[in-house]
């Protein structure tokens, strides 16, 4: 019995042995996953899931252009450049969609792929840097955060990217709390919101601005492709488990915490990309929600069907 406990203890503490890097990885993963999961709830309800994907791809040219100007990968100007192209893609989508007969899904397909392609072109033309390479763009390099400058906080050397993403996360969560009613109302009924004298487009662009900022900080950790998973999987899992928006936000946040932590264990045992591990862990949680979600989990449906059909059979035999 003792040996089992000891083994469990060894397993649980394994990611956090040695230096603090394990702790920084988990915190970094969580600090990008949490704001993503909360914003994802609103994207999901507004049927804008793919806009998150569009932004995450479009930040690339912004990052590269800013890097080419300042020649420093840890400069805040990179965040600025990325945020700018992230916003640009939402404006492009809106323009194509409203000024032509092309519908929104097609407009998304046109705008972000082009910006992403432009980013790739710039990378291959102008940078031969280790930090901006194909791997980093596709799935990020979360473990690289420990190579950045660190700031001494609470007696520990905290890597700068973690500090940036934590500040962005706090800002995003603060914005969601402050503007909760506005977000809820305009997501549910844009007509009513407009009749109150509030332009739903303003809410849309505010949301897009916060989203761009969050996506930009996530880019470094998880790359361009996987951000969409951090945005949508927690929100979709939570959506299957509740009928209340506030509960959905809470569950979505819990989902992001569990998958960030689970990703660490997958990482130390299989030595794989943390970002990918996080998405896979998230998907497992989604499947759990799908099967056992208290609102309309598949298992409860099967159970109901099974018992119902059984009682019908019984009834037929009886009468």
């Amino acid at each position: 019995m003792d040996t089992v406990l000891l083994q469990l203890d060894a397993f649980l503490s394994r990611p956090f042995q040695g230096d603090d890097s394990g702790l920084w990885y988990v915190l970094m993963a969580f600090s990008v996953a949490l704001p993503c999961s909360l914003l994802g709830c609103f994207l999901l309800l507004r049927r804008m899931a793919l806009v998150g994907d569009a932004i995450s791809h479009s930040v690339l040219p912004g990052i590269v252009i800013a890097y080419l100007i300042v020649k420093d990968l840890s400069s805040p100007w990179l965040l600025f450049g990325a945020g700018a192209t992230g916003m640009l893609v939402t404006v492009l989508i809106e323009m194509i969609h409203s000024k032509t007969r092309v519908k929104q899904d097609a407009a998304i397909g046109i705008s972000f792929t082009t910006l992403f392609a432009l980013g790739i072109l710039l990378v291959s033309l102008f940078t031969r840097n280790d930090h901006i390479d194909a791997d980093c763009i596709i799935s990020g390099e979360l473990t690289h955060i420990i190579y950045y400058e660190a700031l001494e906080l609470f007696g520990k050397e905290v890597p700068m990217p973690l500090i940036t993403s934590t500040i962005v996360a706090i800002g995003a969560i603060g914005a969601i709390i402050v503007f909760y009613r506005l977000l809820m109302l305009s997501s549910f009924d844009a007509g009513l919101t407009a009749s109150f004298g509030i332009n739903p487009k303003v809410v849309h662009y505010l949301l897009m601005a916060v989203l761009s900022l969050v996506v930009v900080t996530s880019f470094r950790a998880v790359g361009a492709i996987l951000v969409i998973a951090l945005l949508i999987i927690p929100a979709a899992s939570a959506y299957l488990c509740t009928h209340r928006l506030k509960t959905m936000l809470l569950l979505s946040g819990i989902h992001s915490a569990i998958s960030s932590l689970a990703a660490m264990y997958i990482y130390v045992n299989f030595e794989c990309s943390i970002a990918s591990a996080m998405v896979v862990a998230g998907l497992l949680l989604f499947i759990v929600a799908w099967l056992f979600g208290p609102v309309d989990g598949l298992v409860w449906k099967w159970k109901r069907r099974y018992f119902r059909s059984e009682s019908y059979d019984y009834g037929e035999v009886d009468h």
Binding site: L45, R47, V178, F179, R181, L182, M184, L185, S187, F188, D189, G191, L192, S195, F196, I198, Y239, T242, H243, R244, L245, T247, M248
Partner: peptide, 26 residues
């Protein structure tokens, strides 16, 4: 038909939305 009736809000939440015009967003 202009709203999504799968939206995670209750009947009470929707009725309360009526008061937001005068109450404001904050």
């Amino acid at each position: 038909g202009s709203v999504d009736w799968d939206f995670p809000v209750t009947v009470m939440d929707v009725a309360l939305q009526g008061t937001y015009g005068k109450l404001g967003m904050f």
